[in-house]
Design a protein around this nucleic acid. Structure first.
Length: 405
DNA sequence: AAGTCTACCAACCGCCCTCAT
DNA sequence: AATGAGGGCGGTTGGTAGACT
């Protein structure tokens, strides 16, 4: 026995909304709020089902929706989060202020997915597609490049997950404090959610700082060992190919500190010092901060990633076998140790992303330890090679586009 | 100019989850 | 515990506009 339909379908209009219908819906909601969606159409004088009204409002009519072209930063965020969360569009949307899950989903399907595919990356797994039908040295080189990309992705994935856990750990303490604080002052209005989020006051922090910081660290700092890289474990790819993918448009981003200046590899400029975002930005929010804007609890702008991973490995040894989340917690501990404690002003990350991470999308935990040692073993020459390889891949991709186009 | 193809995206559909009863 | 309402979510469809032949 199936569910009864949400409304009588007979006589109800379907298809595109007219401006008059939009106006009716807006006027009603602005005056009375949506209340029960099922009851709304008749009250508002609309020949639509409640579900249709809800979709129209949440995906199109809400005043706090940002429309138009996605920025490079947004693209990067989508790809990163998709790699972590898969097709959990609502969770991804929660990290992109003023974008709806539907819009992100469409953008993924029509733009990003194709771009990934064109780059030889499986958009589902975020792994490089392996071509077993052909051989040759160029393919060997490509495999190595892909492996390097994977290793970078492992690092990023680990960082993202560790960050999320780190912030959550901090928030457990903060929520309690905040509740205590809130109970001592008048209640603020509940936040409106755009797919459960609201537009946020953008902090001045450069987006994706965490990832870029990690990149800069791995790039700029020679490491101690020359152990061979193990390339058989691929992981998810994040912003490094987001930049590659964006190459067919404009690599210059107002927020990116990374550039591909032709074929010349230039040192990356120093990143700004992370600034703390106040726990309560503005008055009425749930302290949700875009995923990519959660600052690392760094106390200065020195490069401490190597130290982090040293600490990580030490902690890992001490906690091995305790829990499936040991890797993450070890990383958290490493952060904690290297940073000299938590920054008390770290904002929380939205719960759905954290939940998604916890729900099993941290499936690469087992790679964390390996990726840590891998990253520690990447030497400067290999990093140079890595970036040159990316340039090569990007150029190759462009050439292919020209030929195919 | 007309027909066809392609990309885009708003909207729909059906399943799932939560909550109240 | 079972049931149903309400709403959220992700996959898919279909209309439309622009590009191409």
């Amino acid at each position: 026995m199936g569910r009864s339909p949400c409304c009588e379908k007979v006589g109800l209009k379907k298809g595109p909304w007219t401006p008059e219908e939009d106006q009716k819906l807006i006027a009603y909601i602005e005056e009375f709020g949506h209340g029960s969606w099922r009851a709304l159409p008749s009250k508002a004088g609309l020949q639509r089902c409640g579900k249709s009204c809800r979709l129209r409002w949440t995906n199109y009519l809400r005043p706090d929706i940002k429309r138009g072209k996605f920025s490079l930063q947004e693209e990067q965020t989508i790809i990163q989060l998709h790699a972590l969360l898969g097709n959990r569009w609502s969770a991804i949307a929660a990290q992109l202020p003023r974008r709806t899950d539907n819009e992100i989903k469409n953008y993924w399907n029509t733009h990003l997915k194709k771009r990934l595919t064109r780059m030889g990356i499986d958009p589902t797994t975020h792994k490089p597609k392996t071509d077993t039908t052909s051989g040759g040295s160029s393919n060997c080189q490509y495999s190595k490049d892909s492996a390097n990309l994977s290793h970078m992705a492992q690092w990023e994935s680990a960082r993202l997950e560790a960050e999320a856990r780190l912030v959550r750990e901090t928030n457990k303490m903060k929520v309690q404090r905040q509740l205590e604080f809130e109970s001592s002052k008048p209640q603020t209005p509940a936040r409106l959610f755009l797919n459960k989020i609201t537009p946020l006051v953008q902090p001045s922090l450069p987006p994706c700082l965490d990832i870029l910081k990690a990149w800069q660290s791995s790039w700029s700092k020679p490491t101690q060992s020359n152990e061979t890289l193990n390339s058989n474990n691929s992981s998810r790819m994040h912003s490094m190919y987001a930049m590659m993918l964006s190459n067919d448009e404009n690599l210059e981003s107002p927020t990116s500190t990374l550039n591909f200046p032709g074929t010349t590899l230039l040192p990356l400029p120093p990143l700004p010092v992370p600034v703390s975002i106040p726990m309560t930005n503005n008055n009425n929010n749930n302290n949700i901060v875009p995923f990519n804007q959660v600052p690392l609890p760094l106390t200065d702008n020195t490069n401490n990633d190597d130290e982090i991973w040293k600490q990580f490995n030490l902690t890992k040894q001490n906690t091995e076998g305790d829990h499936e989340d040991d890797d993450i917690m070890a990383a958290v501990e490493a952060f904690r140790s290297s940073c000299g404690g938590f920054d008390n002003n770290i904002p929380p990350i939205s719960s759905n992303v954290l939940q998604a991470l916890e729900d099993g999308n941290g499936g690469d935990h087992e790679n964390l330890n390996e990726s840590s040692s891998l990253m520690c073993n990447v030497n400067l020459e290999e990093n140079k090679h890595y970036w040159n390889s990316i340039l090569g891949l990007v150029n190759e991709s462009d050439d292919m586009n020209i030929v195919l186009g």
